[in-house]
Each structure stands twice: as C-alpha cells, then as structure tokens.
Design a protein around this nucleic acid. Structure first.
Length: 561
RNA sequence: UGGGGUGUGGCCAAGUGGUUAAGGCAGCGGGUUUUGGUCCCGCCAUCCUAGGUUCGAAUCCUAGCACCCCAGCCA
C-alpha cells in the first residue's frame, strides 16, 4: 500500500502516546476504539477518525475495537450497523473486537448500584423542564434537586423499580451526585439513566432504562481495556466527568484525548443535515455520489487509498479548521493517476470525417492502458473513416493559444494519425455538425519521425464501434464554501447547487469501456476519472460516474485571456 | 474575571529556547510530454497584538484581542 510507506507526520496524539509509553502509564499498551453511533452513515469526517484510530493501533502494534455506541434505541438501527461495518472494511481496516455499548448494560447497571451505595448517585423525580431550570445557566450556579438527599435504600429501591418498568418515560432519572454549582455544566449532577420504554435493536425489550453517553462511554472504554479514548473537541468539557465516574468506580481509567473534527469546504458534515438531504430526496440516498459519506464516495469512484492518504495529509490537531476540498481532489487524482486505466470517451460528440481514408476499412490501433504503469498493458482501438470528436475540440475561428482543430490546422488523434482539417459543415443555426480532415498515413500510431510538431492531441471514438453510455457529471452539492453556516431552511435551500448533477445520456465510448465490470475505474483521456456505477452499470447500458476532473490548465489560460 | 479550548503564509500543518520557520494543497513562473494530464525545476511567512525575561523566543512570563465549544432525559 503506497499510503503506508509514507513518513508519519508527528501529531500531538502521538506525542501523548509516546510519553505514556515512556512512563509506562499503560504498560506500553496502546488500545483504541472507533465508537460510531448506528444512527446514520459514516462520512469523510468519520473516515479521518477511523484512519486515526486504526492507524495508531497499527503503528504502535496496538489494538482497535469497533464499538457501536448504541445507547439511544429510538434513533438507532441495525441497518446502520451493517453499513458502518461494510464502510470500515472497504476503507481497508479490520477491528480487533466488535463491541456494543449495549453489551455492557448489565455491568453498567451494577456500576450504577455501586455509585448509589456510595451516595454518589440518586433518583430524581424532577421533570426534564424542572431539571433544566434547576441546572442554572452558564454564569449562575444551579440548585440542588429536592430529591437529591434520598436515602441509599430508597434510591436503590427506586432504581430497581425504574429498571423493572414500573414508571412511565420521563418520570424519573438516575443522576450522579456531584456539584450543582460547578462552572462545568457537565458536572451539575448529570443524568446517568433515563426511562425509555423502547425496543433496542440488540437487547430488544429487556431494558426500559438506557444509559446516557457520559455514563456509558467511559465505562465501556474501561471494560474493554482501552488506553486512549480519542474523541472530538466538543467532549473536552466532558473529560472531568469521564474521569470522575472511573475514579469513583475505581476501575481502569483510559486517557480521553480530543482532536478537531474534519471540515471540508463546500461539504456538509452534520449527520442530521445529511439525513435531511436523504429524506427530502434532494439526493438519491446515503450513497448518492455527491454525498460526503463513505458509501457515496465509493459509488463515485473514490478509492480507499485516496481517502486514507487524504486523512493522513490533513493532520491531527486541536484547532478548528476547514480543509480546502481541493486537497481531497488532489488525493483522489494522485491515486487514480497511478491506477486508473486510460480510455477514450467523447462527451459532446460531433463527427470528424477523414476524407482520404477508405470507407468500410477498420484498423485496430494500439493504445497503452496506463502510461504510469506498464503492467496495465495495451489494448486495440478501432479506427475508421468516421469518428466522433469533442465539440469543444474544434473551432471555426480559434483564439490565440488554442491548440486544437480548426480549419487548416493539424492535430494528432491520440494513438492514431495526424490529421489536418480541410472544411466543416454547419446546420441552419450555424452549429458545427461535421468536420472534415485528411490524414497523414506516415503518422500511424500518432507519431511522425520528421520532427514535425503538433501542439494538440485529441481523443476520439470510431462511429461504427462506439458504444453509447450514460455519464453523470457531479459537482459540489452546495455553492458556498461553508454550507454548515446556513442558519435555517430557507438559507439551506438557497445554497443548494442546482447543477450538482448533470446527466449526459449519450456519450460515445470505446468498446472496452462499455464492457467493463461495475466499479471499474477509468481515466477518460483529457477529461477526468470515471467509475462504472456499482448499482446501475451493465454492458447493455453502461453508466459512469465522474469521480474527479483532470486538472485543466487550459481552462485557466482561457479565463485569463 | 462562568468554565473549557484554539490562534504559524490563501487552506491544512510540523515546530516542545539556538533550524535559512518542515511538508502538503492552492497560486504563480519555467521545462518535459502521443492526455493543455502526469512528471521536473523555481517563486510564495518571521509565527494574533503589546510588553517583558534571555546572548538568543513561534517556543518562557505578563496583559490584551479574536474565534470555537458547554445550560438534551442526543452522541
């Protein structure tokens, strides 16, 4: 794997681990976990976290579990569990143990009893509104609940009865007894259990009380022997609570470490908003190629290596940042340039007739499949009198630096011949319909030994061997660099890029392109990287998704003049 | 003076008192090229501000400023 030979860039988490290893805090062990909640699909932000956790485990000869944080049955589904596992494997990682927070519900309950017995947790009868009111504000301390000083016996009894389902949802909670005047809101007697008569995707109807994140997460880490619990910045304030539970319980205490989540320009990373795109049919499901989900990127044709290299390239730090999506595009191109097969496809075809080439003749010319990789071999390409070329590759009256075809101009047809434009035909509206040219038989294969230079090289497809394919050109879903900043629905709809998908129903492609298996990646010469759609492509009806464009310096010089 | 964080080039990001302040992306200029692709070469910062400590500071101290997070029985 090319991405694993690169030198590792230092980051603050590695420094922390190195220090722990040096001081033997965890006996030299490094044990991580990736803890998704199964309530949606994984996106590129999760990919960064996956690469971080599994990558650290790999580099330190440690372990990394996959743990589903399934503590909220009303939002979680088994289908998401399945999709998440598939995505992680596709990314190229394998977990040591597959765990679920729900595996620990019994232990968690025992732990809760332990805290109650120590006088460190109590059952509160306040409503959620009252709890909020009692919590105080950011600048004012909270007030103790009137139920805060119940006896251990009463708390034990009540907790047991909460568990057995005696009370309706929302009537009671178990709270940690910490400090209602703490400047850290998380320490103001946080809720540990809420009553939820809901069916859980794994434990079924066994439980009607479910642990909150803070009560479940650290203990789960501890039970699994996790040494470094990596999470995102917003949990920084939770660390004191994370540690409080573990210290009061006197069990193994991992080190929580927070890093800044990934943000990308023109990309939405909020699961809630991505769900909205799916639910409202703005995109075609979680795996729509425009989605920043791993499933969407897979379908678009992005490679696992590109995603891994990108994750590595953005680094790990604590400052909020927004990475330019161009950096991701670079990673995609970098990998695909080395691996994608080259072939020719004409997106917007016009006819090119080689006047001096015999009718009915077909030559099978040779083309290299990948100039970056000899082992990719060569293929035969049919050449005939009538070809398709790109509409944009011919101009009646070309500007200064235009290297392509124009009346009287000579260009190279890739892998074929030098041709010189003799004339052209237009329709009643003046649109070019057919271009005529003569070829130089001595340039067969696309090369002349006489030192003659041609500036332009065009891709083409023989009319009688062309296969029609559907090509989907994707662009950013949003037309603003920071779509996450949209404050309300109106703002959200306003920034949607109406041209994020353009379908070309009749692209002319080489036979080899049409014959490929779903998921095959190509570089359509001079245009970009494309991937045969994994759901809809077939030899009968070829369908390609554009993964990325090629860098286009011509577009830049064109813009400048 | 609620608490917790973060500030290094357009975007990421190394740097842990002595380095010409890494590297990548983007941009710009040039070369190579049967893809206006790739590749190659070159250019592109004195580190939020102000003081201070020191022979020497992005790194230490002081005082500011800016931005992010926290008042779910979500995670």
């Amino acid at each position: 794997m090319s991405d694993e030979n690169k030198p590792v860039v230092s980051n603050f988490i590695r420094t922390i681990i190195d220090n722990h290893n040096a001081t033997k805090r965890f006996g030299g062990k490094v044990h991580l976990r990736f803890p998704p909640e199964p309530n949606g699909f994984l996106h590129i932000g999760h990919a960064k976290s996956i690469c971080l956790n599994f990558g650290l485990a790999r580099d330190y000869n440690g372990k990394c579990n996959l743990r589903f944080d399934d503590t909220n049955p009303v939002k979680e589904e088994d289908a998401y569990v399945k999709a998440i596992k598939e995505d992680i494997r596709w990314l190229g990682f394998e977990w040591d143990k597959e765990c679920y927070a729900s595996d620990y519900f019994d232990t968690l309950y025992e732990y809760a009893v332990r805290l109650v017995k120590k006088g460190l947790a109590y059952v509160d009868d306040l409503s959620s509104e009252e709890i909020r009111a009692y919590r105080g504000t950011l600048k004012e301390p909270g007030k103790n609940s009137p139920w805060r000083d119940r006896s251990v016996e009463e708390n034990l009894d009540l907790l047991e009865r909460m568990k057995t389902g005696e009370f309706p949802d929302g009537t009671k909670v178990l709270r940690a007894r910490i400090d209602m005047s703490s400047p850290n809101m998380n320490m103001r007697d946080p809720v540990m259990y809420r009553i939820l008569h809901a069916r859980h995707h794994r434990t079924g109807d066994k439980w009607c009380i479910y642990p909150m994140y803070d009560w479940a997460h650290g203990q789960s880490d501890s039970i699994e022997g996790v040494t470094h619990s990596i999470c995102t910045l917003e949990f920084e304030d939770h660390r004191p609570l994370y540690e409080w539970f573990l210290e009061k319980l006197e069990i193994h205490k991992p080190q929580q470490i927070e890093f800044a989540r990934l943000n990308l320009t023109y990309t939405l990373m909020s699961k809630r908003k991505l769900l909205k795109l799916v639910n409202e049919g703005i995109v075609d499901g979680w795996d729509d190629p425009r989605m920043p989900t791993i499933a969407g990127m897979r379908r678009r044709g992005v490679t696992p290596a590109a995603l891994r290299n990108f994750s590595e390239s953005v680094g790990v730090a604590k400052s909020n940042s927004v990475v330019d999506v161009a950096q991701f595009d670079f990673a995609i191109r970098e990998d695909l340039n080395k691996t994608a097969l080259r072939a020719m496809a004409v997106m917007e075809p016009i006819r090119l007739v080689i006047e001096d080439y015999p009718e009915g003749k077909t030559e099978w010319l040779e083309g290299v499949n990948n100039p970056e990789d000899d082992s990719a071999g060569k293929r035969k390409i049919p050449f005939e009198r009538e070809l398709y070329i790109e509409r944009g590759d011919f101009m009646i009256d070309p500007p200064k630096k235009y290297f392509r075809l124009a009346p009287g101009r000579e260009v190279r047809l890739k892998h074929a011949y030098y041709v010189t434009c003799t004339r052209y035909e237009t329709d009643s509206e003046g649109r070019v319909t057919t271009v005529f040219a003569r070829h130089d038989p001595a340039t067969r294969g696309g090369w002349s030994d006489d030192g003659r230079k041609v500036k332009g090289t065009l891709h083409w497809v023989a009319v009688n061997h062309a296969v029609s394919a559907e090509v989907r050109l994707y662009d950013h879903l949003f037309n603003t660099p920071n779509p996450g900043e949209a404050r309300d629905d109106d703002a959200f709809y306003a920034i949607l890029n109406k041209e994020s998908l353009k379908i070309l129903p009749d692209v002319k492609v080489e036979p080899v392109i049409a014959a490929c298996a779903p998921g095959t990646r190509f570089q359509f010469l001079r245009q970009g990287y494309f991937c045969a759609d994994i759901k809809e492509h077939s030899t009968e009806r070829p369908v390609f998704n554009r993964t990325a464009t090629l860098r286009d310096s011509w577009a830049k010089t064109k813009k400048k003049s």
